[in-house]
Simulated assay, not measured.
Amino acid sequence: MTSEQLKIRTKQYSLLIINLVEKLPVTTASKIVAYQIAKSGTSVGANYRAVCRARSDREFISKMEIVLEEADETLFWLEIISEKCWIEKDSIDAIWKEGNELTAIFVSSLKTVKSKI
């Protein structure tokens, strides 16, 4: 997968997260979770764009670790939403699957670059 394809994919993931947030119930707790997942989920795509501008392997690693951290945090918030039964499981499963696939890609990219230095 090229970096351009991954840029598109991470942006689409951000949109999936935004759509999910818009479906959450409006309670004190869900507002907090909505804010957190909106931040982490959209940060995946935004920070991946920064990865693409890295000027060195070390900078790539540093920025990619941020992307990985945001992706993992988003998976955590998806678990919370699922366990609270705020959204139908089927709706969350597709986003969960995409988040896991993106996380696997980020981990693989990190391992590849780290093995070079």
Rank of each mutant, 00 (worst) to 15 (best):
S3Y: 02
S3F: 01
L6T: 07
I8D: 03
R9M: 13
Y13Q: 06
L15T: 09
L16Y: 07
I18K: 01
L20C: 14
K23E: 13
P25R: 10
V26P: 05
S30K: 12
I32C: 11
V33D: 06
Y35P: 00
S40V: 03
G41A: 03
T42E: 01
T42C: 04
V44Y: 02
A46G: 03
A46I: 06
Y48N: 05
C52N: 08
R53E: 13
D57A: 01
R58Y: 13
R58D: 09
E59W: 08
F60R: 03
I61L: 06
S62A: 05
M64I: 09
V67D: 11
V67M: 11
L68F: 14
E69A: 15
E69I: 09
D72Y: 00
F76R: 12
W77P: 00
L78G: 01
E79C: 15
E79T: 08
S82D: 13
W86I: 12
I87E: 12
K89W: 08
D90V: 11
S91K: 06
I92F: 07
A94R: 11
W96Q: 08
E98G: 08
G99W: 09
G99L: 07
N100V: 13
E101F: 13
T103N: 04
T103V: 08
T103Y: 06
I105V: 05
V107A: 00
V107L: 00
V113P: 02
K114E: 03
S115I: 10
K116V: 10
I117D: 14
I117M: 14
